[in-house]
Nucleic acid binder design. Structure first.
Lengths: 189, 189
DNA sequence: GTCTATAGGCAGATAGAC
DNA sequence: GTCTATCTGCCTATAGAC
């Protein structure tokens, strides 16, 4: 066991890595930078993690597992409520904002089977389950817009976002379920 | 992608670079890859472009100039119509989907003064002009959601997106202007 | 658990022949 | 305009001392 005051080197490394990955991207962040910021050497990092990739895996797993759970629940309950699903999805994003921001921005990670590919297939699954069977093109676009609202969460200033969860949720819901008679007035550019 | 008519080596290089940058990210794409795909060598690339960075600059300039123009127009017309602005913003995104996708995902480019920083300040300016003076937190979040809808455009399948412009636009508008009595039912997770 | 030292690779960029 | 050859620098990762 580590000392109560100490966060544990492992966790410190992960936290620092997340910060740098988020700020600069995964590729652009070298182990040297992570080590320097922790007043360590690269070699010390390799004592805790067998490879750079492992940092990414451990950072993203909690979010991805959460999304996985959501998909499972949606499949189990065919009559899932749209609002409940969007709410759960949003809360997942709020809990893991940093990781979401990293994943959505980082093309370097998007071909990794256990990270990018897994994330994409989970988002696709949720989107498809949310869209429902045999959807109209309109429904497909609307679902994408609703998820777009939630995906925009990482770009909202944190201080503003606090306690504004329901506003985002309402916006997402409205993007999804529109009265068909709501029209664009004179919006051509 | 490439026309049967000769495009000019310069344009071919730019097109190839955009494709690879979009697929893999800027950092992750080496000049060697670009050269290989064009059956050239790295050195040949350097005849046309003085540095890798220049590829990014030329690829993003059209979009950024368009956003710049929009900001200027908004500033000139204080009574700008929300719908018109969102429509113009959306059309900008539709015209430059690939570049938008690249820019929004690529942290490696986001600290470059003439690319990432410029893009961010332009988005911020549009957002602020759209939000209006002395906004409520709700208004700030709603504006972010509306722009989130438009920002989701690169993630909508292209074949579905065709002719669905107005659906996206309507969704964005609704995210922006909500009746305050629209409530979330039982959406707590 | 952390260090020094270094292997081995590939990146961006340049020089100069053709 | 395109090539070959090469420079320089930083990267991930490993070996082994303390």
């Amino acid at each position: 066991m580590t000392e109560p005051t100490h966060l544990g080197t492992r966790e410190q490394i992960l936290a620092t890595a997340l910060g740098l990955f988020t700020a600069q991207g995964y590729d652009a962040t070298s182990l040297r930078q992570i080590a320097d910021q922790l007043h360590m050497t690269k070699a010390a990092l390799y004592y805790h993690f067998p490879a750079k990739e492992q940092l990414l895996l451990e950072l993203t797993r909690p979010l991805l597992d959460g999304m996985s759970r959501l998909v499972t629940e949606m499949r189990a309950d065919a009559q899932h409520d749209e609002a409940r699903v969007l709410a759960a999805y949003l809360d997942l994003f709020l809990t893991h904002v940093d990781v979401v921001g990293l994943l959505s921005r980082e093309p370097a990670t998007q071909n990794h089977p256990d990270v990018g590919q897994r994330a994409r297939s989970l988002v696709a699954a949720i989107q498809q389950l949310l869209t429902g069977p045999d959807p109209s093109p309109r429904r497909v676009v609307r679902t994408a817009c609703a998820m777009g609202v939630i995906h925009s969460v990482p770009q909202i200033p944190i201080d503003v976002l606090d306690n504004q969860r329901d506003i985002v949720l309402t916006a997402a819901l409205q993007a999804l379920q529109t009265d068909d008679d709501t029209h664009v007035k004179s919006a051509r550019a």
